[in-house]
């Protein structure tokens, strides 16, 4: 057997020797030592767990950690590809009056996503979201923020290329961008707006 049991025996012996005013019963000591000595060698899993030095969690704690982790994973699902470094961007479209305004990356090259700002002036709307080929036309996936002026806006990183989009107002009304050229729609018969995105 390894050094483990010997060290344990020594600790038992020294404890018994140092105990004031007690006379150990030799039979009890022998019995204890024989139990320790003859105990079966722990399994590989048990030895690995014994060697593991991470604080344990209670049943409730473990459940909470697992729940939080699953929730975080659910919230961030599908977000990996869109996480690109947003800096450093320089506004270039606003000076030329082009809409939607594009903020081009100065360092990430021709294929890097370009932060593109969309604007809709609709003070009466309660909710506005951006739908297009870049977000699978998913209603509510890209909500716009309402400014005090009643103008709605959102900036999203888009891959370079031609994109078709529209605004979804109050979850039901699909409207085109009055600032952008229109796109025909042979499939569904409802035109959208077009934005050409590229690194400037």
């Amino acid at each position: 057997m390894s050094e483990g049991p010997d060290l344990l025996i020594e600790r038992v012996r020294s404890t018994l020797r140092e105990a004031p005013g007690t006379v150990p019963d030799p039979r009890r000591v022998a019995q204890l030592l024989s139990v320790v000595w003859e105990s079966p060698e722990p399994s590989a899993l048990r030895r690995w767990l014994d060697a593991w030095r991470v604080p344990s969690l209670s049943g409730v704690g473990a459940t909470v950690v697992a729940g939080i982790a699953l929730f975080a994973g659910f919230l961030t699902r599908g977000a990996v590809d869109e996480r690109r470094a947003p800096e450093p961007f320089a506004a270039t479209g606003s000076q030329t009056g082009e809409f939607p305004v594009q903020f081009a990356s100065a360092t990430l090259g021709e294929t890097a996503p370009v932060l593109t700002q969309f604007v809709l002036d609709d003070a009466k709307a309660q909710r506005v979201s951006l739908v297009g080929d870049f977000n699978d036309w998913a209603a509510g996936a890209t909500p716009l923020t309402r400014l005090e002026s009643g103008v709605w806006t959102v900036s999203v990183p888009l891959p370079p290329g031609r994109h078709v989009y529209a605004f979804l107002v109050d979850d039901t009304l699909l409207v085109t961008d009055p600032r952008a050229p229109k796109s025909g729609d042979a499939d569904y018969g409802r035109e959208g707006s077009v934005v050409m995105v590229f690194a400037r």
Binding site: A69, G73, T76, R77
Partner: peptide, 25 residues
């Protein structure tokens, strides 16, 4: 540290690792 608690902690951390990969979720 009890065996039961260690196993629970291990399972929680394994779940956390898996759910940290959004694509898998």
């Amino acid at each position: 540290m009890s065996m039961h608690r260690r196993v629970l902690t291990l399972v929680s951390l394994a779940l956390a690792s898996v759910s940290a990969v959004p694509a898998l979720a």
